[in-house]
Design a protein around this nucleic acid. Sequence first.
DNA 1: CCGCCAGGGGCGCTGAGGATA
DNA 2: GTATCCTCAGCGCCCCTGGCG
Lengths: 341, 341
Amino acid sequence: MDEKPHGTRPGMADVARLAGVSAQTVSRTLSGHPNVREHTKAKVLAAVEELGYRKNDAARVLSSGRSHTLGIVVFETMFYSRSAATVGVETAAHRAGYTVSAVTVASMDSTAIQAAMTRLSEHNVEGIILALPLVQVNKGIEDLTRAIPTVCTDGSRTASTHVVTVDQHLAGRMATEHLLSLGHETVWHVSGPESWIEAGGRTQGWRETLEASGRFVPPALQGDWSPASGYQNGLILGRIPDVTAVFVASDEMAFGVIRALHELGKRVPEDISVIGVDDIPLAEYCSPSLTTVAQPFGFIGERAVERLIAAIDDPQTPAETELIEPTLIVRSSTGAPAAAS
Amino acid sequence: MDEKPHGTRPGMADVARLAGVSAQTVSRTLSGHPNVREHTKAKVLAAVEELGYRKNDAARVLSSGRSHTLGIVVFETMFYSRSAATVGVETAAHRAGYTVSAVTVASMDSTAIQAAMTRLSEHNVEGIILALPLVQVNKGIEDLTRAIPTVCTDGSRTASTHVVTVDQHLAGRMATEHLLSLGHETVWHVSGPESWIEAGGRTQGWRETLEASGRFVPPALQGDWSPASGYQNGLILGRIPDVTAVFVASDEMAFGVIRALHELGKRVPEDISVIGVDDIPLAEYCSPSLTTVAQPFGFIGERAVERLIAAIDDPQTPAETELIEPTLIVRSSTGAPAAAS
DNA sequence: CCGCCAGGGGCGCTGAGGATA
DNA sequence: GTATCCTCAGCGCCCCTGGCG
């Protein structure tokens, strides 16, 4: 009469009963503890198999106090960098025995970010990766970063967040120097949204490089990372006679720019050179193939996870900023300017 | 002396004590239950605020038996369709009050998929979305799909999985008919990996359309979704004099094909027309802009989640297959063939 | 009698100590 | 003493019952 109702998921007690051991022993064999005889282990495993037992994470987390889960907050966008970052984090975390739980945020104001972090903390994550810029930090976020180890993969930070990020300033410099070294008088720029610290870094690197070599610094145009916004800005740039080189803050916008230039009858790179940032998979295969500053997304994810786990293991770990160097990849969208008329 | 150790997260009991009510009352106000006086509610909320209390999901799940979490299994790839599908599911789930937990799988054999589903079930997900083809189904997967409502967004299925998928057969037909209607004698094809049911459907739609109108059916070339594989196949196609139209199973491969054709001195669409599938963000902005068969990823995610939740609410819901129609988007990579020599 | 709240029991698992060889 | 196993007491929360106005 004390039949389990149909469809109920078997628990550890059921396994224990079938194997003729205590629940504790089942727990130990399942978590690879020592001090369990081979024979016993076999019996337990057989019972698990027969019952189709699957462990209950909620119970495990509640009881042990550890979730072995990392949280990641990403900005809702379909663009390459988003998924690249997530994938990098996921594989690194998985390798370290952690699961990652992602929450997407639709806007970047502090309330939304705080809500996302709270959700993650309710899920008992042991650490959080912020894959977006922390534009404004409110008290709630401040508290959360104090309570839970946090690493940011954008330049921004609070007092207690660790940072692992690409040196965007350097990226801007590399792109600009590449163009200058090709013989261009100056370099124009299409930036990302100003709320992104990443975008700001690139713009700054570009401007300072230009200033350092005494060139004219053109006004920066601004896009929103989308190909469409690149296209719009390309329509403007293509109408300015002086323009011979453009540094675009992302590959996707760069293709938009190129497209607009084509429509205006400008050739790339013969008339105008264009360089992007990211090195998306298509960068090599669109026409012309795109010269770009590659960001090592996988490596960033890896380092971010490593740092986060270190901070989890020892909360005293001091919060530092780690800068990763990007790589220039020269393809065929950049070249020397046409001989002056 | 019975001080809480520093750094310990406050529990509901702490809140209750501070507010001078029982833990039960805290629970009720927090889950929006009726039968709590305004005044009491306010006291509780104040205490929550002061303590920085965040609810503990593990405990809630364990105790209530409900996790309000959906699981999704995706194939590890950086390509567009992957993230598009995930985003669609995430937003739809979120709107319905569910969280989604994703697990990435590196290979598509049944063992890997079973492992992924098991992990999800250990996380107590209430339903699972399989965003990959179920090539081979073993007993473990069979059991899991029986125990947990499952919907597949690829054509494949077990006896108890629901299916929401794009009509790939139709996609293949639409692409082929478009090319034929432009006046091409026949259409060549670069397919996806044969293990993907999606790829198979497109290929089949292409072949049958050709057969139906009595055209020559060229041998299908095969890629692996990557731009590089498209490029390789393009290098082959561009050397075959007869080729005037190519149906490529994904946009990313299509750009690879176009690139190769350019290198071989062929113009697109003047010499050869190329059509892709997916409608990635860049399709409109690369040169030439790509004619393609768009897949409504967002809508798929939405429908998949709806169906899944219906199945969770009523496990008796019969498993059906829902086919979603793709859309032809004509841009500038396809055109009429050059007048016969 | 109904609206509001407190208390006990238990979800499935693990950590600590004791018992048995 | 050492290897193996078991009993016991919670983890933080929600459901149920019942008492108080």
